[in-house]
Design a protein around this nucleic acid. Structure first.
Lengths: 158, 158
DNA sequence: ACACCTTCGTTCGAATTTGAACAACAGGAG
DNA sequence: CTCCTGTTGTTCAAATTCGAACGAAGGTGT
């Protein structure tokens, strides 16, 4: 009867998990944003770009690859890489194997910046998230969100 | 020696939890944003405003209260409430007990909108997050993120 | 070599977000 | 009452974000 049309609403636990996710996500982002801006003059997004580059072989990545890792739009990345380029933290160079390709590469200043910015950022992540949870909670969180991310990556049709 | 200056970096599990959180959060928001926009013409933020209002007594809340619940800036809320007001989904009225106060109230159209938009949204949240996890994972997630949120709310100095 | 479809990164305009500054008011201490 | 401090919601400029459209190039099948 109505079972076919009536959606399955979230029960108490499900709602708690979902609301907790949304609220924690927003609050965390706010705090990290402030801390990075004040201490290093970087936005969280810019910081993440530097991190992904510094973790990549040759301190460099193709724009599209980088956009995927960051989970952002291509145009958004173009904008931010331009900003970082103006700050002297990232340089653009063309891709040898593909004329269309653009490679974003960390500069010396970029490496220095991430080296200085990372400790404070990690300390805050630890204080606000990691150290609040037990080892078991962390493990479950990692596995759960890993599964959710994988599920989302799968059918992410642009 | 160096132990005092060297930050405690994240180990494998901690990093997995943190990255999982960031990635899942971004991917989820992207998907929810698209779905809401296409199906109802609402942004996720606008949808959340309607949800919080419809959950409040009298379908109404003070601006500041609403901003707190949404974890957004006051100016951001002012903008979005104005948008919703233009759409006829929300109305502003002044607060009886405080001349400065402004109360956002759900209109009839607003109630109808949330009634139509909710099923599709909840279904997607279920598909992408809730139903991907086991009952135990959900419980741990709820408790963990609840603790993190509480910790964050505590010392959130504006 | 040719047409065809996809991918790459950028540009563009529109929408949104933020923090700082602001005026108006509330709430108390004296 | 009167000053003083904190709150409330808005306005403003600046920064950021996104999707659609674009030109240019890759890759494939014939």
């Amino acid at each position: 009867m109505s079972a076919l049309n009536e959606p399955r609403w979230l029960d108490r636990d499900e709602m708690a998990a979902w609301r907790g996710f949304v609220v924690a996500s927003n609050l965390l982002n706010r705090r990290l944003e402030r801390q990075l801006k004040e201490d290093s003059g970087l936005s969280h997004q810019q910081y993440e770009i530097l991190v992904h580059l510094s973790a990549a072989p040759g301190d460099s990545l193709r724009m599209t690859e980088l956009a995927d890792k960051l989970v952002t739009s291509k145009s958004g990345l173009t904008y931010q890489v331009t900003q970082l380029e103006r700050m002297g933290l990232v340089a653009r160079r063309s891709c040898p194997s593909d004329v269309r390709g653009v490679i974003a590469e960390l500069t010396g200043q970029g490496r220095e910046m991430i080296r200085r910015a990372a400790p404070g950022h990690v300390a805050l992540v630890r204080e606000l998230l990691i150290d609040v949870l037990t080892r078991e909670q962390l493990a479950v969180l990692a596995e759960s969100l890993g599964a959710v991310s994988a599920r989302l990556r799968q059918d992410d049709v642009p």
